[in-house]
Amino acid sequence: MTQRTFADLHHADEPLLLPNAWDHASAAALAAQRFPAIGTTSLAVAAAAGLPDGAAATREQTLLLARALGSEPFHLSVDAEGGFSDDPDEVAEFARELHAAGAVGINLEDGLGPVDRHAAKIAAVRAAAPGLFVNARTDTHWLGDGDGTIHRLDAYRQAGAHGVFVPGLTEAREIAALVRGLDGGVPLNILYSPTGPSVPHLADLGVRRISLGSLLYRRALGAAVQAATDIRAGRTPGGPVPTYEEIQALSRDTGGAADATVSFE
């Protein structure tokens, strides 16, 4: 485990760039690239199980992934959708299980549901698992037009959220205004978009955490399909391909993320 705590990484000189993994190999490969913290992505967890994302259908799969990654030498933050329940006590119990598995962070989304209900979930998680960094996500830009963002974030901050997350917000002026509106109270997390501001630009705007969400998983899936169709068409597929031995080196029995060196040249 790195010397800095997960919370410390949100207040460092540079914003925390958080890549999101979907299994042990993807997490270990990212850790081998010296990312100190790695998140999970609920879309990939759901897709791998043939289930819909955001439908509270993958509680067990999410917990299994946390148990697979929680003992690895990186900070693990888990995308827990809305906590897989509307009952704050049930969400708190899930948070306890994640923390016991080794997770140090949890991402909870409001899905534009009632503010008070999401705030109650946050407060319950803080009480049940004080060691978890709670990143409170609002979907005002993801599912709506941005109305009420500050109101929701203020409520979540008062409930005990350590950080706040606004996916779907990509306009630089709006991001800067939101940072000012938060007035330094909690670190702002933004979802990286290839069509939005770059990482250095987001840093200049005052963003403290930049998540990649499902982007890496979707690119990996796209690359796999492209390679298969290229081969079928008689073309040689392009792009980096780790060797069999490099992937084997990612397993726990060979040291996992601690010692692996994966080449993507």
Results as ranks from 00 to 15, higher is better:
Thr2Gln: 14
Gln3Tyr: 04
Thr5Glu: 04
Ala7Cys: 09
Ala7Trp: 05
Leu9Asp: 11
His10Met: 15
His11Phe: 13
His11Glu: 14
Ala12Arg: 06
Asp13Tyr: 08
Asp13Ile: 00
Pro15Val: 11
Leu18Ile: 07
Leu18Arg: 08
Pro19Glu: 02
Asp23Leu: 05
Asp23Cys: 05
Ser26Thr: 05
Ser26Asp: 01
Ser26Trp: 00
Ala27Asp: 03
Ala27Phe: 05
Ala29Tyr: 02
Leu30Arg: 07
Ala31Thr: 02
Ala31Tyr: 05
Ala32Val: 02
Phe35Gln: 04
Phe35Thr: 00
Pro36Gly: 07
Ala37Tyr: 02
Ala37Ser: 10
Gly39Arg: 01
Ala44Pro: 06
Val45Glu: 03
Val45Trp: 05
Ala47Lys: 06
Ala47Met: 13
Ala48Glu: 14
Ala49Tyr: 01
Asp53Phe: 03
Asp53Lys: 03
Gly54Tyr: 00
Gly54Gln: 10
Ala55Asn: 01
Ala55Val: 00
Ala56Cys: 11
Ala57Lys: 12
Arg59Cys: 09
Arg59His: 12
Glu60Lys: 12
Gln61Glu: 15
Thr62Met: 05
Leu63Gly: 10
Leu65Asn: 06
Ala66Leu: 09
Ala66Glu: 07
Ala68Cys: 11
Ala68Arg: 15
Ala68Ile: 06
Leu69Glu: 05
Leu69Ile: 07
Leu69Gln: 07
Ser71Pro: 08
Glu72Gly: 03
Pro73Ser: 07
Phe74Pro: 12
Phe74Asn: 07
His75Ala: 14
Asp79Phe: 02
Glu81Met: 04
Gly82Val: 00
Gly83Asn: 05
Gly83Ser: 06
Ser85Pro: 04
Ser85Glu: 02
Ser85Ala: 13
Asp87His: 11
Pro88Trp: 11
Glu90Val: 02
Val91Glu: 04
Ala92Asn: 03
Glu93Gly: 09
Phe94Thr: 09
Phe94Leu: 12
Ala95Asp: 08
Ala95Phe: 07
Ala95Arg: 05
Glu97Trp: 06
Leu98Pro: 08
Leu98Ile: 08
His99Cys: 15
Ala100Leu: 12
Ala101Phe: 02
Ala103Tyr: 01
Ala103Asp: 08
Ala103Gly: 06
Val104Pro: 02
Val104Ile: 13
Val104Cys: 15
Gly105Lys: 02
Ile106Cys: 09
